[in-house]
Design a protein around this nucleic acid. Sequence first.
DNA 1: CGACTTTGAGATAGCGCTACCTTATTAATC
DNA 2: GATTAATAAGGTAGCGCTATCTCAAAGTCG
Lengths: 338, 338
Amino acid sequence: MKDRPSRATGRPTLAQVAARAGVSQITASRALRSIATVDPQLATRVHDAAKALAYVPNPAARTLASARSHSILVLVPALSNHLFIETLEAIQDVLRPRGFEVLIGNYHYRQDEEEELIRNYLSHQPCGILLTGFNRSETAARLLANAGVPCVYMMELRQEEGIVCVGFSQEAAGAKVAEHLLSRGRRKLAFVGAQLDARVLQRRDGYQQAIARAGLPPAFEIMTPEPSSVELGGDLFNRLLKEHPNTDGIFFCNDDLAFGASFEALRKGVAIPEQISVVGFNDLPGAGQMVPRLTSVRTPRATIGQHAASSLLSLLCGETPEVTALDLGFKLMVRESS
Amino acid sequence: MKDRPSRATGRPTLAQVAARAGVSQITASRALRSIATVDPQLATRVHDAAKALAYVPNPAARTLASARSHSILVLVPALSNHLFIETLEAIQDVLRPRGFEVLIGNYHYRQDEEEELIRNYLSHQPCGILLTGFNRSETAARLLANAGVPCVYMMELRQEEGIVCVGFSQEAAGAKVAEHLLSRGRRKLAFVGAQLDARVLQRRDGYQQAIARAGLPPAFEIMTPEPSSVELGGDLFNRLLKEHPNTDGIFFCNDDLAFGASFEALRKGVAIPEQISVVGFNDLPGAGQMVPRLTSVRTPRATIGQHAASSLLSLLCGETPEVTALDLGFKLMVRESS
DNA sequence: CGACTTTGAGATAGCGCTACCTTATTAATC
DNA sequence: GATTAATAAGGTAGCGCTATCTCAAAGTCG
């Protein structure tokens, strides 16, 4: 048994820790991984030795030997949206302290890119994957299934055997917005959506259904696949005013669009909320400072990240959560704009 | 020589590729890594075999054997700031197609957290590191130096032997803002800064120096270490108006603060730019849509990421760039607010 | 109380690659 | 034409860990 520092990094190896603790290498390995079958007294000796040598395990060696890394892949459709940043941060706050490394994959709302990322990152043998929603290519889904890596889905809910997900009902949120606008006496409603991912469409559906339930004609829809931006919000608002000048309530699929619309309204002298009520989505920082302060749906994005990460940890321990579809709800923040 | 699929992933191994190509494993390895000493004809055979088997190298094995991974660590002070997201995206656009994996470390503007991230990620033996600015703990700097990993510094410039950096002069940008406000006839200037990192202070210095050069008294400063936010911008603006009601020009250290101030001004009826000129920094998306449209300094954050990544790649090839401090400049976007 | 299980520790053998050394082949030099 | 130098391929031996098997010691039961 050799016990010398690592060739490359010059850092101590497990063999050195074992030698110092006076145990075999494999016992040291087990002790450091907190595997039950090691005597507590020996385990303490090993931990002391590791601390004294400032031992840090070599992740590559660990991954090669065990065929599973300690990294967790998180796939999000965008980083430019503050929404996912907060989710990511919450995930990291849970996983990093427990010794997991978080790999971030941004697929820019593109299925082919997501597929490519999955293909690439699977070669790193992640021990778990966090995914956004359920809408992905057949191939991507098959890759995930074949890999046999535990997955947790975020943002959307689905009651299905073997699927663990954390989110809220996008439909219910859309419905809530419709009910709010109706309660304000608005009757000529519109929906403005961009970057039409599954969740935007679900919100739209919930919104329209609530309007239908109230016995009103469907909301006019302006939808574009372009990426959302403040600027686009202004453009779509102008288009809406031109096509349907008597609109009195608008649900924007996200706050960025609503911000842009608000600026245009200020500029054109369109009175919000007197002439038109405006509601956004996500309650991004800044929504409460807008002029007028923007009504928006606060989504539990940080909490979703936190619970998704925790659920994944449970799965890694072999536990099966009793609640497989965790609904964290949402909150309509009513402000001046409606 | 065994040539069977990987135990864990079931995926083909290098041995299989070699067998199929009728060469030794090491030759296959060299061919796939494009090492010159292999016959072009053999190399083609190897590449064909790899393609036929859909071979993907095992990064853990590669890292363990070569004591160097194919991952590049990028350390940024925040993800919540759109600025760094754009830089990150540009970095990934350069590095991912070349087979490098990008590891993102967010240290939340905290030196101790940066140090911890460096310590942690060095165990993954990254082949290069991209850092933000030069301001870090002694320990962090020593860790980096000892690791012997090529580094490129972003956002700030420093002419120093052996340091490769890509950015722009924060001082010059600050000075440019001062000159612009002075050219608009503003004489009672202020500087409002939050999240006081080195770059904010450099902008402030440049701003004050330009004011001094014009023979005017220094700008009044409101500075707070709190994280920047739209809301904070409004608060600091109100504080400034109370303490120095005759201020006629404000340089906000970033756009978020300027946004918040603009909203407060609208709400209070403070006329921008008639009563006070306002200038932001970074020219975030939305600055051009604000009411009034915000004058801001457009920073080359995407280009910085792109060039920093390219420079790092050069260093990895053993090349030494002739320009070690690449100044990408900036552009003052003059709009309605000034 | 002897056969059986349980438990904790160690020895061994890789994981899938690449560094390094060695050998075979060809080119270059006097 | 013998010696040296350059070049290209292969053999071998790990990288630093963990899975798996083995074995001794201690507990359990009818």
